[in-house]
Amino acid sequence: MTITPLNGGDAVITIHNIRLPIVEYRGHRVVTFAIIDQVHERPEGTAKRNFSDNRDRFRSGEDYFLIPKSEADGFRTFGIEVPNRGLTVLTEQGYLMVVKSLTDDLAWTVQRQLVNSYFRPQPFTVPQTRAEAMRLAADLEEQNEVLLLENKQQADTIASLESLFMTGETPTQFCKRLNGVNCSQVNSSLMRLGWIYNAATDENSKPRYRVASRVRDRFLTERPRKISAEGVESFIKYDLILLLDGACRLHQLYMKGDLTMKSKWDGRHTLAKYDGGDAQ
């Protein structure tokens, strides 16, 4: 088996708040299409489609590998299943080719993190002199202080959201409390982020939103209810229910300007307490 779990198989790395296993195959660190969609917050199947659309440009053994079912056990230790038809994994070069069309701010941030931290981990250089050791200690202390500050700010934000978050509210209801958000566009934003999809088969009917598998029970969950009306065949409607981690992520997107805002927004980022109103 040529899959190499680093540090006894327990090595993970955090990219954009998502913990990923570190997997090597034939001397290359590799990622799956699902991992790319997850860290880039793209709809499921985006990376695979980009690969398929440009398949003739990718070189086997250089840009990607096709893992046979016979090697499934090695990947299963990382929580990665290999289907009967095999699993395509991408090297750094293949990954960069697949995400070439992703040019938003998040894409640039994730690409930099994956390349610098995952595909090209920096080797640790042992200081050779006392001066080098002191400089290294000072650098590490400065980095630690920055991380502590960032962690404190993140913890304060989460604590604030925990005190204001109401269990059972919908994404629209939560966003109604974010000053300036265009609440009529919340579901469109969630579609763009790949959090939900429209399960309606008739393009002329009202949307029937469902939670995408990659965020289900992490950012969102669903609550089914039966809809019945005279002269109309009854059906099951799934209400979108926001979870605390999803609220934290929506608040991050709000602060970064990634949600659709009202044209007359005053520019202030504030979060109001729950007022008991119903979400539409």
Rank of each mutant, 00 (worst) to 15 (best):
Q154E: 15
A155V: 08
A155H: 07
D156N: 12
D156Q: 12
D156F: 05
T157W: 00
T157F: 06
S160D: 13
L161N: 07
E162T: 13
S163G: 12
S163R: 15
F165A: 09
F165D: 07
E169S: 02
E169N: 04
T170N: 12
P171M: 10
Q173A: 11
F174K: 03
C175F: 01
K176R: 15
R177P: 01
L178V: 00
N179Q: 10
N182Y: 03
N182A: 14
C183P: 06
Q185S: 13
V186H: 00
V186I: 10
V186S: 05
N187F: 04
N187Q: 10
S188M: 10
S189L: 08
L190G: 03
M191W: 04
R192G: 13
G194R: 03
W195D: 03
W195T: 03
I196V: 12
I196Q: 02
Y197V: 09
Y197R: 10
Y197D: 11
A199H: 06
A199F: 04
A199E: 14
A200K: 07
N204R: 12
N204L: 08
K206N: 15
P207W: 01
R208A: 14
Y209G: 10
Y209I: 10
R210Y: 02
V211Y: 02
A212D: 05
S213I: 08
S213N: 11
V215A: 04
V215T: 00
R218I: 14
F219P: 02
F219D: 04
F219H: 12
E222R: 01
R223H: 09
R223E: 15
R223M: 12
R225E: 15
I227F: 06
S228N: 09
A229Y: 05
A229Q: 13
E230A: 14
E230V: 13
G231E: 04
G231C: 00
S234C: 08
F235D: 09
F235L: 10
K237V: 08
Y238S: 09
Y238E: 13
L240A: 05
L240V: 01
I241R: 04
L243N: 02
L244F: 02
L244R: 07
D245G: 08
D245P: 11
A247M: 04
A247E: 03
R249Q: 14
L250H: 00
H251Y: 14
